[in-house]
């Protein structure tokens, strides 16, 4: 059920996104930073599932909240003539890499465990 919902959401988003009117160039930098923030939340969510402390409320609010906050910070940065969005990109992408590393480690561990188990079972049969 959850996977079906995700799939439908993705397909609908892609279809509408392909046909939606284009946003003006002025706002595309805001959208870009929002996308980065949202992607960061997604990887954070996967990591929390692995760590078994996933909370939907925190995930959903983080997803939208981070995106909006990133946009607001970018606007503030433009008003102050400081590239705050660079800081946001560094933080978000850095966290994305950390989360990706955790995810990778988890699955590699799992994989090596299953290989070990197979070997021991083969030895026992002999």
């Amino acid at each position: 059920m959850i996977f079906i919902a995700i799939l439908i959401g993705c397909i609908l988003g892609a279809l509408i996104g392909m046909n939606a009117p284009m946003i003006s160039y002025t706002y595309s930098s805001y959208l870009a930073i929002a996308i980065i923030a949202a992607l960061d939340s997604v990887f954070g969510g996967i990591t929390s599932v692995i760590n078994k402390n996933f909370d939907l409320k925190i995930f959903a609010t983080g997803f939208f909240g981070n995106a909006i906050l990133a946009i607001l910070l970018t606007i503030l940065g433009q008003k102050l003539n400081v590239d705050i969005y660079l800081a946001a990109i560094v933080v978000f992408v850095g966290r994305m890499f950390v989360n990706l590393a955790i995810i990778r480690r988890h699955y590699v561990d799992k994989w090596s465990e299953t290989i070990k188990q197979k070997r021991t079972s083969v030895k026992e049969e002999k």
Binding site: G9, G13, G17, A20, M22, I23, Y25, L31
Partner: peptide, 17 residues
């Protein structure tokens, strides 16, 4: 589902822009 929708929509619009 809603979150995936928002994310893919944003990515598509941005790519096209």
């Amino acid at each position: 589902g809603v979150m995936c929708f928002a994310l893919t929509l944003g990515i598509c619009v941005q790519m096209r822009t």
